[in-house]
Design a protein around this nucleic acid. Sequence first.
DNA 1: CCGCCTACCTTTGTCGGACAAACCCACAGT
DNA 2: ACTGTGGGTTTGTCCGACAAAGGTAGGCGG
Lengths: 265, 265
Amino acid sequence: MESLPGQGEPASGLFERIDHVPAYQRVAEAIEREIVSGRLAPGDPVGTEADLVRQFGVNRSTVREGIRLLEQSGLIRRDSSRRLIASLPRYTKLASRISRALVLHQVTFRELWEVTNALEPLSAELACTHATPDVVAALGENIAQSRKALGNPKLLSELDTEFHALIGKASGNRVLQLSREPLGLLFQPTSQMLGEEVDTAADRMVEAHTRVYEAIKAGDADEAGLWMRRHVADYRRGFERLAKDLGQPVERLYHDHISTHPPPD
Amino acid sequence: MESLPGQGEPASGLFERIDHVPAYQRVAEAIEREIVSGRLAPGDPVGTEADLVRQFGVNRSTVREGIRLLEQSGLIRRDSSRRLIASLPRYTKLASRISRALVLHQVTFRELWEVTNALEPLSAELACTHATPDVVAALGENIAQSRKALGNPKLLSELDTEFHALIGKASGNRVLQLSREPLGLLFQPTSQMLGEEVDTAADRMVEAHTRVYEAIKAGDADEAGLWMRRHVADYRRGFERLAKDLGQPVERLYHDHISTHPPPD
DNA sequence: CCGCCTACCTTTGTCGGACAAACCCACAGT
DNA sequence: ACTGTGGGTTTGTCCGACAAAGGTAGGCGG
């Protein structure tokens, strides 16, 4: 978050900065350009390493280092036989990356909650006009499972996360989906803790979920937004009741969870 | 956005999936764990490549490929002398990554606008209680420059983007900041186009900015939120007036901009 | 004729070694 | 005190090599 001087920008001298961009970076940039410009469509083969060696005129090691950069940014992937293909960045991967960054920057629960309090009601409202039958069905199934899981905080918190992810999907807004996903990931461990510590939490959660679900089925955006707002406010009250301060940073705890639930590739 | 079957999850057989994780990935994961767990703090030296070769018992090429992965994800950076140090992912880099992903997924202006319409007013409201004097000063300076740039759409759109980024900073909420930054990047080219095509757009923009600014100085959250909402709604009206449809995907145009304004390293 | 199995071929992952350029540090000279 | 020099270190790049896994084509049996 800081913007230290670093050595990125012009330095405002008369001469251009001499920055010898390493070959592996230029390889990565060249391939990246092909993909973002659309000349390489998702799914297209990028060519074998030997091909790239020939095309760029650099050593295979260099090509491979460039490939690693793109691999991590999600622009290329390996198909079943490990051949390179162009790819769209998976948003689940991006989301977990964002979550990690937020944890590392030690953002507080307050920051998290404030944004969630804006996005989740919006999600619910949009879901009322955009939800498809299969997502509605998945929501119903989720609630049915939640009722059965009332005594199991861990499972319940997972169902909670899934419920909100489904609402995001139902919103039909991918920007919203990508924006809220990292927050959902960060809330999950706390949500589980809440379910364990506050005895009315589970019931209230399922109640709120049900109301939102019914409102979506009825296409009543106001009602859906209202109950989602209550639900989010409820979460905050529960949190404040047991951990005195919203100002504490979102903890490492979440990583233990992530490491046992690696995001699907 | 699709969630194809792929071959990620357990497959629910009795035996663990045999997936030979390549050594370079394991190197990267090992170093990543050190960083996210806090055992390697940002700024700490990670060690030379030769060190890592010794520690992991693999070849230097393998180590280097692992390093590339971490380098791209922002967990590792090179200091002035190219030595490796642990680092926090810069959110500007993350933001541009997110922008790129959104463009590649061809999200529509509607999707973008809906989320912006939730986040920007929130930003303005929070800024009223969290703005620091220097950010307020920067906002004032930004508006002063905007008045002078009324005849220059390109400059004006840059100042517009900066204004909103400053509001994000003033909100004191880093989650919000990171959430809204990619949207701001995607709006900029369109905002410029608007300034060129709709003759009242520039005046209305500066008017709205000024109102928000005054409200923040006065600490009036309702007023700030109100004018930001108007501002965002105004943008949408202007957009609809000249391009018939909000449903069209956010265009490649934005990349031309990004490529001439690379994010600071 | 069709399907299966086997023997090649290709491609990736990893290794070992090598060298030039850039960088750091210490030291000597003016 | 400042400058220049020289050696050691580190990165970026190259070359060559090989095992393992996946793909392919041709032969064999039904």
